[in-house]
Structures are given as structure tokens and as C-alpha cells.
Computed example of a mutant assay.
Amino acid sequence: MKKIVITLILFVTTLGFSQDWNYNFEEAKKIAAEQDKNIIIVFSGSDWCAPCIKLDKNIWQSDTFKKEAAKQWIIVRADFPRKKANELPKEQMDRNRKLADKFNPDGSFPLVVILDNNGKVLGKMGFKNVSPEEYIKMIHAFEKK
């Protein structure tokens, strides 16, 4: 019984810190407008792009970023995996390509695009080998311009 309770507590705690990624930009825009939050789009190659993988591990998965994102932003992931085992559904790939055509025409990976809640680009940046706190400050710097 004790093990079940501990497992349940750990599971619920983990859910509280899970990343709340959106995969549909149009839905994310609606949520951003309703909640008056800016949008962050992350273009990544999750299974082939070394800087993308490092950014995910060091920044996006950090508790610091997760807490800030939950309060400040609606986050969207546009992933472009190459391995067949990680292939996304065709509908999702089509959405990601459409998003890339609009916000990442040069095909930069990783690319982080910061938008206001109307979809206006506030800034773009890539991988930076910094702490989550410093990365968050860089995102906020685009929002203050």
C-alpha cells in the first residue's frame, strides 16, 4: 500500500512539471489570445540535430523553463525527425512544414521564434550554451522591444 501511495505521488508531481507543448499553431494562437500570452515556436530536429537535442535537454526539460513557460507563454513544437521510427503523422508534418514556410524559410535548426499573441514575430534565436535562467532572460528581452 505504501509503495502505491508513493508511486501515485511521484506520478502526480511529474505531471505538474511536464512540458505543455502544443503541436497545432492555430489552436495555440487561440489559447494565447484567450490567456494574453506570447507564443514560442521551437523548430527542431529531435533525432538528428545535436544542438536541438542539447537545447531540449538543457533548457526545455529544465524545471526553471517549465515553470516560466507555464506562467508566461504558449509553446509550440514543430519537429522534423528524420528516422523512420520517429516519423510523425502526415497531418502533423504538413502543419510543421506550413509553419516552417512562414516562420523558418531558411530551415534553421534549432530555431526559437518568439511571437506576440497576434502572431507578430518579436524575435528569433537559436541554440545558446547558457543556463535556463539566461535563456529565459534572452526570450524576455525580445518581448520588451
Rank of each mutant, 00 (worst) to 15 (best):
K2I: 14
K3H: 14
I4W: 01
V5P: 04
V5G: 03
T7C: 08
T7L: 09
L8T: 15
L8C: 15
I9P: 01
V12G: 00
T13L: 14
T13I: 14
G16V: 09
F17K: 05
N22C: 05
N22A: 13
F25M: 07
E26H: 00
E27F: 00
A33T: 13
D36A: 10
N38F: 06
I40L: 12
A50N: 09
C52D: 14
K54I: 11
D56R: 11
D56V: 01
N58L: 05
Q61M: 12
D63G: 15
K67S: 11
K67W: 04
A69D: 02
A78I: 06
F80T: 11
F80K: 12
P81C: 07
P81R: 08
R82Y: 14
K83M: 14
A85Y: 03
A85E: 15
Q92D: 02
Q92W: 01
N96V: 10
K102D: 04
K102C: 02
S108R: 13
P110V: 08
P110R: 06
P110N: 10
L115K: 06
N117H: 05
N118P: 03
N118K: 13
L122I: 11
G123D: 02
M125W: 02
K128I: 05
N129K: 09
P132A: 10
E134T: 15
E134G: 06
I136N: 07
M138L: 14
I139T: 08
K145W: 05
K145V: 14
